[in-house]
Design a protein around this nucleic acid. Structure first.
Lengths: 367, 367
DNA sequence: ATGAAAGCGCTAACAC
DNA sequence: GTGTTAGCGCTTTCAT
């Protein structure tokens, strides 16, 4: 079998130098039309395709941007999706499993396309000393990383070589973090949603379900909740009413049980730190014969597709994940051109606004 | 500012040769633990990251799979999404714009992840002689292409170098097409859907809206429609009742107008070659005061997210787009290992089954 | 277990 | 316009 053709083969067969072959691809106008056609013709029937690797090596740029994200995947959501894909599940199938990361991918892809970049995506899946990031980092001009995919420290090192933007993770400390950041207004969103429950629906006995692991995002949400409560003169502790180990549907369902079984008056509203848990809670409430929102209001956070598909539809805070992807690309592209011009700018921290989606589970629309 | 560190820098600072540095990353066990740690430590504080390009060049493999797709994007759908993202649109926002290609990306990404590959995605956006494919082809071990992104001829050439699988496009001719193919059972799906309308709902005056451009997929769908009609003794022409220039919502709306304005009895059902058009038709019918499905039934094809969100929910044929992406990766991975072993197999043609989603717009569920 | 040396296929100065 | 010549940073025999 033939070895894959290179510039040398094309050059030889078309009677020009390798430099000319290269020019035909990089800067067609710098080659006489006739020569160019000849080269192109030879290339075509030789089956020549320029090696991206060789190019990248020689030119120190790839025309590719990257995205690294953790291996999210709510086992529950995934299995529901599988069932649906198999043709036997209910309607809440494929799209319901649209994750956070999928939306970001969409946003980045669209923006990258506009700027003429391709997108390299890779989910973490721990390997040897050669981590995921390294793999991506070595093949792109710049990349975005979802929070908690990789230690900030490692990123910090890489960002000396190329632009890196951290998504959905707040700056850790100004010393050890010179990365660019894009996050969403977690506290604002949760505060506004809480205010809505209190002022517009007149609810005052609220319960908040948070996350056991350290997660700046989730903490910011809780903070927003606390602020809204205090502003309304409702007393709240320094801790969520409950913290779960995983923010999944199953855990959300369990959390709802726990909250309902507590002695004392039943809460008028259950606020969850994400949609998945809220959906799980909906199941529990339904099973226990409690009506939502008449007996208890329920809210989530994120605005995933599933939140709209469940009944009652979930009131939640929508994060502009897609936009986050777009902004990440814009930022990377800007950094890249800055570097090309030798400019150096301070790290950026950008906060994207969120919006409250008022649906049926808080009582805003008929269930 | 410092130049980015290379194997040489690491080698020098840790007192070993570049070969050893390389080994530390490629095959850690072949290096004495003590040496390895030393190298790793130096690498860490030098901020060394192996260059993917240099690696790819030297080893002739990248660990990356690719996907090329055309710059789909229904202007209507996109703008609706924009409005939604801005916070002012209705609920049918972000996810509604989930395209065909997005689902395939999801499928490929998941499968690629399982096999330890990263995914490079790029939408066409015509450029110089150096087409999109070439860009992708040069950076991956193998890739998938959505039909109508790139001339089969060009792919044929590339497939001599690396595995290429064509998605959703039937084999063009056995001569000039040795590519692997994965398509869906377009004819089967449309036939079954049509049969359902005829037998289960007793409808007999049907109208089919197709596509003006050449598209094997759409033709196959129409063929299925014709077969079902004939089988039921309903006479149909060799051509769709109408062919539109673009398969968008706007065109679908227009098509519905045209069909309704035709003299003679009003059709009992409007069948569209894709969901977007069917959704457009729904708007028209609503505006003209016709009830769906009581006055007219409407059906689409694809099973995009939007099809479930509109009212009445659209009866359609669901394509397993995500699965298509997964199968594509499986096929590529298999081909890659075959090639590594010097095996050569005949091109594969795989057809994935579709399923009819019976919803409200045909009369199966309450609107 | 480690080193030396020869590429991998291309781009980028710089000559002509 | 086109050719010459160095690398780009790594992997890979082949020695040792």
């Amino acid at each position: 079998m033939s070895t894959t053709p290179t510039v040398y083969d094309v050059a030889e067969r078309s009677g020009v130098s390798i430099a000319t072959v290269s020019r035909v691809y990089r800067n067609p106008d710098s080659v006489r039309a006739q020569t160019r056609e000849r080269v192109l013709a030879v290339a075509r029937d030789l089956g020549y395709v320029p090696s991206g690797n060789a190019r990248g090596l020689a030119s120190r740029s790839t025309g590719v941007l990257g995205l690294c994200f953790p291996d999210y995947s709510d086992p529950d959501a995934e299995s529901e999706a599988e069932a649906g894909a198999g043709g036997h599940g209910d309607e809440a199938d494929d799209e319901a499993a649209m994750l956070y990361s999928d939306q970001i991918i969409r946003g980045m892809e669209r923006a990258a396309r506009r700027h003429g970049y391709a997108l390299l995506i890779a989910a973490s899946l721990k390997g040897g000393p050669e981590s995921l990031v390294a793999k991506v980092a070595g093949r792109v001009d710049g990349f975005a990383v979802l929070a908690r995919t990789v230690p900030t420290e490692e990123l910090e090192v890489i960002s000396r070589r190329q632009p890196v933007v951290m998504l959905a993770g707040p700056r850790e400390s100004n010393d050890l973090d010179h990365l660019d950041h894009i996050e969403v207004a977690n506290a604002d969103g949760q505060r506004e949603l809480t205010r809505h429950l209190i002022e517009d629906h007149g609810l005052r006995r609220l319960a908040y379900v948070g996350f056991a692991e350290e997660s700046p995002d989730v903490e910011a949400r809780f903070r927003g909740y606390v602020e809204a409560c205090r502003a309304a003169g409702i007393e709240v502790g320094a801790e969520p009413d409950l913290r779960v180990a995983m923010m999944t549907q199953a855990e959300g369902a369990r959390a709802a049980e726990a909250l309902l079984d507590r002695p004392g008056e039943r809460p008028e509203a259950l606020l969850f730190a994400n949609d998945q848990m809220a959906v799980g809670a909906l199941h529990t409430l339904d099973r226990r014969g409690l009506r939502v929102p008449q007996d208890v209001a329920v809210t989530g956070f994120d605005g995933i597709a599933l939140s709209r598909l469940v009944r009652p539809a979930l009131t939640t805070v929508r994060q502009p994940m897609r936009r986050m992807g777009e902004e990440a690309v814009e930022l990377l592209v800007r950094r890249l051109s800055d570097r090309a011009q030798g400019k150096t700018e301070d790290p950026v921290s950008m906060t994207l606004p969120v919006s409250v989606a008022r649906r049926a589970s808080c009582g805003c629309r008929a269930a």
